[in-house]
């Protein structure tokens, strides 16, 4: 099976042209392409279906006539979404949480990651253990809830910004970056010139760490945007709800539209269509920036996976 076709070709010639593939290898490669194409379709289809439905007419969606491309293009669904006060408020809240949450999280992460990256920082070993242990063991839901309650954060915006502000994984990523891309000589030279640690961070580390700051910000921002659990347990007031919690009540619990008896069928159709539009509107910010930032995400994952 594995014998190379064209045994007559001399070694050096084979190297120049690359060794020709056997028949079974070509079949194998063909199968690989086939499987990947199927995977591609499976990954893509649900996304296309949602998008197509969201710009179809309420009647077409409600009668199940959409299966791939939009039917009777209309933007009624989007109109309904943008006229829904709850959704708009959730959107604004989520933007708030994403922006300020990210700001707080990134700052705290760098504040702990940079000292951890310095070899001359006494106690960094124990400190690292202190932090990573929290990945292995946790007090659990109720004990954490009681701490947040004790601090008076229940039903305030703080509850979504502070209790999960630092992700250990992000600290590891940032620390590994500082260790691998900022040479020790740089900080030693700065020290000899009388530059303090603080000054060194603000005028050397931060400017040199733009890629890692981008990675951290994006990951925290996406995390904030997509989270619902903390809001579910800590918030009671509707006006503080992030978008995901509003989505849950509209999409999953079905508390969406106020049904007007006279126009019930139309309303129901619109409510069904609105689900699709809502999914698009909620996922769009993340999916739009995704192709541009994918590189950074991959980099971040890889930096983190290097054992430091």
């Amino acid at each position: 099976m594995s014998a190379i076709k064209g045994d007559g070709v001399s070694q050096s010639a084979a190297f120049r042209r690359g060794i020709r593939e056997s028949r079974s290898d070509r079949i194998f490669l063909g199968l690989t392409y086939l499987i990947l194409t199927v995977v591609l379709i499976i990954a893509l289809y649900p996304l296309v279906y949602i998008l197509s439905s969201s710009i179809s007419s309420p009647a077409a969606v409600a009668s199940g006539r959409v299966w791939l491309w939009p039917v009777e293009i209309s933007f009624d669904g989007y109109r309904a979404v943008f006229q829904n006060d709850q959704v708009l408020m959730g959107y604004a809240n989520s933007l708030f949480y994403a922006v300020f949450g990210t700001l707080i999280s990134v700052s705290l992460t760098i504040m702990i990651a940079y000292p951890l990256s310095k070899k001359t920082f006494f106690g960094r070993g124990p400190l690292m253990i202190f932090i990573t242990f929290t990945m292995l063991f946790s007090g659990g839901l109720i004990p954490t809830y009681l701490v947040v309650k004790e601090l008076g954060m229940i039903d305030t915006r703080w509850a979504l910004l502070i209790p999960n502000a630092i992700w250990v994984w992000q600290v590891i990523i940032a620390r590994t970056f500082f260790q691998s891309s900022i040479p020790d000589e740089l900080s030693e030279a700065a020290e000899i010139d009388g530059c303090s640690d603080m000054r060194f961070i603000t005028s050397v580390i931060i400017p040199l760490s733009k890629p890692i700051i981008a990675v951290l910000s994006l990951m925290y921002a996406v995390g904030q945007w997509n989270a619902y659990f903390d809001a579910l347990i800590y918030l009671k007031t509707q006006s503080l709800y992030p978008l995901q919690l509003i989505l849950r009540s509209v999409l999953i619990l079905g508390n969406g539209s106020s049904v007007d008896a006279a126009d019930m069928i139309k309303q129901q159709q619109l409510a069904e269509l609105m689900k699709y539009s809502l999914i698009v509107v909620a996922s769009l910010p993340v999916l739009i920036i995704y192709p541009f930032v994918q590189r950074y995400f991959v980099q971040g994952m890889l930096i983190g996976s290097v054992k430091g």
């Binding site: 992460t109 702990i112 001359t120 063991f137 007090g139 659990g140 954490t144 701490v147 502070i162």
Partner: peptide, 27 residues
């Protein structure tokens, strides 16, 4: 030598104590 860095870690360390370690004891 690094007193500024020790100041810097106070806030993150407090975060871990308050939101990760106190819950462990609260258990």
């Amino acid at each position: 030598r690094h007193w500024q860095l020790y100041l810097l870690i106070i806030l993150p360390v407090a975060y871990f104590i308050i939101f990760k370690y106190i819950p462990m004891f609260n258990a």
